[in-house]
Structures are given as C-alpha cells and as structure tokens.
Design a protein around this nucleic acid. Structure first.
Length: 271
DNA sequence: AGTGCGGCCTGTCCGC
DNA sequence: TGCGGACAGGCCGCAC
C-alpha cells in the first residue's frame, strides 16, 4: 500500500514522539512477516534510546547506537500510536511499549511487511544498497532518468516503479505522475525523449509533494502514526477512475493491466 | 541484462 | 445469503 508519501507521513508523525526515547517493552505477536521477525527483537530494543527515525525509499530506519531496525510496510502495513489499554486488533503483529501507557503498533493484514535488525551500516544492506535516487532529492534529474531508461523496452510505468530507477513510486503515483507528464503508461521507457524525461521528473516530484502535503493517500486502511487517514485520494486524477471523465479534458479515463498492475490514463492528454 | 511471471498473505468486493 | 474468483498500494526469486 504505502508509497513514499505514506511512509514519510508516518515517519514525520512518529519522529517527535519516539526519537530520544526508548521502548520499555516489545512484544512480537506474529513473527511471520515477509521474513521472520528476529526472536531477539525485544532484548535488542528494550531500554535503548532511539537516536533517529529516518526513511530511505519506502523503508523506515529506526537508528540506534548498536544497530538499525529496518521496517517496511509492504502493501497493507501501518504504524500507529495507541493506548496500551486498547485491546490489540487482529493483525496488530508488533507492539512497542512507550511511557505514558502508550504504545506503537505495527498492523499488517497481508503480512508483506518487513521488520529486521541490521548491525553496522544499514545502507550497505543489500535491501538498501541498490536503491535508486530519492525522487525529491537532487540526484533525480532528467538526465539520470534518461540514462536509466535508455534502450529499455519495458513500459515506462513499470520502470517508474522499479526501485533501481527511482525509489518510492508505487502503482498509484506512477499512474498519476504519467498523467501529469502527458505520457502513456505503456510506452517503452527507451522511447522517451529528453523533454519527456524532464516533464516526468517534474511530474513525479510534484505529485509526491502534493500527496505529502495531503498526508498521503488512503484508499482503504492507510493511517499515519496518529491513526489519521490521508486525503490525497480526493486529488487522484486517474487512479481508480476508469470510465470517468478526465479532469483536464473530460475524455473517459482508460484502464489496462500492465505487468500485472492496473494502470490508468487519459487517451487524449497522454501520448 | 532485462524481462515476465509466480509466490507470498488476508480481506473485500463482485457476479452468479 | 452463500460461494468462488478476481483483485488489492510491494517486493523477491526464478526461468528464459
């Protein structure tokens, strides 16, 4: 589910609450995530002061002096603060107790999420080492994108979602960004011209920034660290709008599965 | 190397 | 109302 705006929204909500403090208790209620949650997690974290809460791509990094808790929300994961007295819901797999009778809960019905411990430099971990540039950072330029797309035949939408090309863009924002750039999702990546790449970089950044400002997109169950939904679903211009009029030109929005993912575009605005 | 596909899970929705 | 099937925001590993 969560793409960059949702993960970053979560991070921003939790940072002021968690950084500088320690979890007093950690409970693993369900360890079967994408990879098994380490059994030693409670002992690794208990009483240790959190130094920083960072994000890289769609990963959250809980940074400690002795290592890093690497967390990914997968497709259906969320992190939220709850009162300890509240009965855990189904699929509340991890509980991180903090003071004041509050706790952080990791909720993930589909269990595609990830929670692992990394010693040493986390950015050398293979999961992080090969990631492409941050879309809102200086390294994501039209030239860099063009270099990554050159010669490639795969649909540009799939390449936008390839975390080695640019990170943080998932199925929703890929369709949205391509609409903003006037590029059809099925176009082979290698056929984009320099001005296409420039518009696409600009559009990716604009869409992600707007979604961030709206607190992310909640289609079904995304909530931020404080349990609140994001409002960007109201601003989606093509995603999930098959057959509805394009908000720019009123042409019916088309939909097609590309690389097993539903994709949406306006046949008039995008070419 | 790049590409396409299946698998991992549960929940929800749709059509019959 | 019940049931089967399709589908859902991500990522990985495998075969070609």
């Amino acid at each position: 589910m969560p793409e960059l705006p949702e993960v970053e929204t979560t991070r921003r909500g939790l940072e002021p609450v968690l950084v500088g403090r320690a979890f007093r208790e950690v409970v693993v209620r369900e360890s079967r995530l994408r990879e098994p949650v380490p059994e030693a997690l409670p002992e690794l974290l208990r009483g240790r002061r959190l130094r920083a809460l960072e994000r890289r791509a769609k990963y959250l990094l809980f940074r400690y002096a002795h290592g890093t808790l690497l967390l990914h929300l997968g497709m259906s994961g969320s992190l939220r603060l709850a009162r300890s007295v509240e009965t855990p819901r189904k699929h509340d797999h991890l509980r991180f107790g903090i003071a004041d009778d509050r706790e952080l809960r990791f909720h993930d019905p589909r269990r595609f999420g990830l929670c692992v411990w990394i010693e040493g430099d986390p950015f050398l971990d293979p999961r992080l080492a090969r990631l492409g540039p941050e879309p809102l950072g200086a390294a994501f330029t039209a030239d860099a994108l063009a270099a990554n797309l050159r010669g490639r035949k795969a649909a540009v939408k799939l390449l936008l979602m390839d975390q080695a090309v640019v990170v943080g863009v998932g199925n929703i924002y890929a369709s949205e960004a391509l609409h903003g750039a006037g590029i059809r999702p099925g176009r082979p990546g290698g056929r984009l011209r320099p001005d296409d790449c420039a518009r696409l970089v600009h559009s990716v950044r604009r869409v992600l920034r707007q979604a961030l400002r709206a607190g992310g997109t909640t289609l079904r169950d995304f909530v931020n660290g404080h349990g609140e939904a994001g409002s960007f679903a109201l601003a989606l211009r093509v995603y999930g709008r098959e057959g509805l009029p394009c908000l720019s030109c009123a042409t019916p929005i088309q939909s097609r599965v590309i690389g097993q993912r539903s994709s949406f575009w306006c046949p008039n605005c995008q070419s």
